[in-house]
Design a protein around this nucleic acid. Structure first.
Lengths: 243, 243
DNA sequence: CTCAATTTGTCCGTATGTATC
DNA sequence: GGATACATACGGACAAATTGA
């Protein structure tokens, strides 16, 4: 359980900030008790008593941990271990992207390079882990993109699912979450960047090409298809940044 | 400036949580005024007046933004725009790593795959951007690792610098920060994982091999050298997880 | 459905630590 | 050292959400 410390040393010493210490203690509590996402934490009152801090300090520490999705708070219900998602990365990168967007879209350009690098770097693994089930699922998504593109409708949901499914066979949860995070940032920072009919066709065609290359077990072609996939966005970015 | 809202609607409606709204407003303030890292934000008191919330709510919102390094607070001095680092990603991944460490080191294994994927995925760019200056700097670091390894001393500083320098010529700030973040997580979660004399020699040799492959402009050899670089850690991980 | 209990969310007042001049 | 401005911390009170009797 939580060891009680003497509140006597409240405002003394070169003690690190109160909340930092409290946050650290809460993390230790989770680790020590081997709690997982969804497990209940002590109430605020209990935490206050346990660490000898005021409710304000405890709440601010919890706020920090909430931002990192280490804890999750449900109003009127309690405090729980969080889902440990990469929500913090997304929010952080989105903000950076929005800041640079006004000027030069630098962060977005860098983000696209990262996305492409990861997908190309995993080309060999993706291609070798490719099977018929995955092929049919990805083909279906690419077809849906086709239809929606012809109807002038957006297809962001299909696009997100496509790029996540591509990574799924690798069995690396971190890669999947990073892929999702980067995709989310991209979608928020550049919601309507590549919307000319021509570049949309190009993008949809690239998805088909990616599936075919993977199905053929052709790593080189897969890499080329990924390159082609990001080409339209890159082009639009160059135009924007060129102004 | 910050638009004043009527505090009349304080506790009314299905209004989103107060702090969420306050945090959003602070971010908008930064974006709207095009502030950058280090620029000053209004004081807590001014923020309270501007958004019509109490100090507690404003402080908790600031705590959230601080965790994301969007704002930075200097005690007794003021509140400023943060450095927009990936500190939140590091803290988040470190905690996940510590949680999984007790059981199966799963997160660490996945992290290593990500590091290797990024370095290998960028092989072509790294090799083509390689020049003599970089070569001599990296060689110097590898030599230092050699010496320290023979003396039985750690060489984490040199290792970190090595992997960051490798990425520098690419001119992609995001890649550099991600590389640093992943390295930091690795170092914290597995501080003493590959410490047998043999694997240390192997690791040091791999750094030399990476430099030579890059200098020779040989992308394939570079990829192989990176593979060899992570081989010892992988091996130790398999042993740990096999138990 | 109403009521009460529990728990988090917000506000206020006050005191203290910290940095600048 | 003193004065000022600011963030940090505490404690109490009440509002809002959730659960269950």
């Amino acid at each position: 359980m939580l060891a009680v410390i003497e509140p006597a040393s409240r405002h003394s010493r070169g003690m690190q900030l109160r909340q930092r210490e409290v946050a650290e203690r809460i993390k230790q509590y989770i680790l020590h008790n081997r709690l997982g996402p969804g497990d209940a934490l002590p109430t605020e009152a209990e935490l206050c008593a346990a660490v000898g801090a005021s409710r304000s300090s405890v709440r601010e520490a919890i706020k920090t941990l909430t931002a990192l999705d280490i804890v999750e708070v449900r109003h009127g219900h309690g405090t729980y271990v969080g889902r440990l998602s990469l929500a913090a990365l997304v929010e952080s990168l989105v903000f950076r992207g929005l800041l640079s967007r006004e000027d030069d879209y630098r962060v977005l350009a860098e983000l696209i390079e990262v996305r492409q690098t990861v997908e190309q770097g995993l080309a060999a693994s993706i291609v070798s882990a490719f099977d018929d089930d995955l092929r049919s699922e990805l083909s279906r998504l690419a077809d849906q993109m086709d239809e929606r593109a012809k109807a002038g409708e957006p297809f962001i949901e299909q696009d997100r699912e496509f790029h996540l499914l591509l990574m799924k066979p690798l069995g690396n949860e971190l890669i999947i979450q990073l892929t999702a995070a980067f995709w989310d940032v991209h979608a928020i920072v550049a919601p309507t960047l590549h919307t000319t009919p021509e570049s949309v066709r190009e993008t949809v065609a690239a998805h088909h090409a990616i599936v075919e290359a993977a199905a053929a077990g052709d790593r080189e072609r897969f890499i080329a298809a990924v390159e082609a996939h990001y080409a339209p966005v890159r082009r639009h970015l160059r135009e924007k940044r060129g102004l």
